[in-house]
Amino acid sequence: MLEHLLSKQLIINMGKGGVGKSAISAMIARVAASQGKRVLVCEVNAKERMSQLLGGTPPEQDDSLEQIWTINERISAVNIQPAPAMKEYIVQVLHMRLLYNLVFENRVMRYFLRAVPGLQELIFIGKVWFHVEEDKHKGAPRFDLVILDAPATGHGLALLRIAKVVMDTVPAGPMRQAAEKIQKMLQDPKRTCINLVSLPEEMPTNETVELYHKLRDELKMPMGSLFLNQWPRHPLDPESPMHPMSKSGIEEAFDTLRVEAKQDPLLWPMALAADGGLHRLNKAREYLLELLKEVGLPTYTLPRFSQDDEHDLTQLTASLAKSWSQSKPLLASDIKDFERGEKSA
């Protein structure tokens, strides 16, 4: 599964806001780098997160063409911003430096270009395309893998949809040519795969199902894996839920005594805490089941971790990357076992 994912040139991580897309992007970048790949992580017009997740200090915002910064030997990152991306497109792709200097340095013109519907999205995804294709030396790509940490659902979809919109609306010209190349790359299952990131909760689950159908059926994009973040800890048996569908023996034992335990003054607060935890875990399993049925992509569950002063985020992504690279995804074919309640680690 991992090989399948890491053999791509472009991985796009999509999902609702706040579900941990950036953490997943950073995690995949680490694993790819540990296998010797040169990786570029692209954020889009966002509050930069990669320095926190992967370490390193991002450069000051400037107007230079090179917006990419090096995190370590193998991982680089870029936060794609409207104005520099526009400049790069005009100077490097269209080779019109003079034109840029004459016209587009002008604040008013930048304004106009921002007003052209979709142009900004096209420039953003165009920059991603440029880095996927970019050569360092003749024939040798600068990056083996580009990871796009997409903006939250609506903005992310606009980004993936824009090439097709331009092709449907614009009969000819440079915008259309760019759109055709981008669309070809996005739809090529050999080069590109789109992952979904979500949480085992109601709203994110509904939105993920909807997003999946839009991406697969409407935009015809090649789909990869589903990452379910913040999987709740099993309250009674932290060892067993390696497989998130298993119902362990200890939980069954607890079933038989929970009623009495709740009346015991000593056990009561603990029994309540465990009950609440089991309840949340069972809800999470329901959403997982729904996602396997409705989406059916190979699914990874990742533990919830608290982000606080004591734990360095960089260390957390490192340990997340390590456990993920050794785990197996759940498949739609696991549903039957799950429904019988027999699936175990």
């Binding site: 800890r233 309250p235 009674l236 048996d237 932290p238 023996g249 200890i250 034992a253 607890f254 038989t256 005594l257 009623v259 009495e260 335990a261 015991d264 000593l266 056990l267 607060p269 603990m270 029994a271 805490a273 465990a274 935890g277």
Partner: peptide
Amino acid sequence: SALEALPSAVDTTEYNAKIAKELHSYY
């Protein structure tokens, strides 16, 4: 001990010990 004192607790000391430990750590 509290678990074992419960009337219908499962009759497996091994399980009770484990549940006790996990209840404590989860709390």
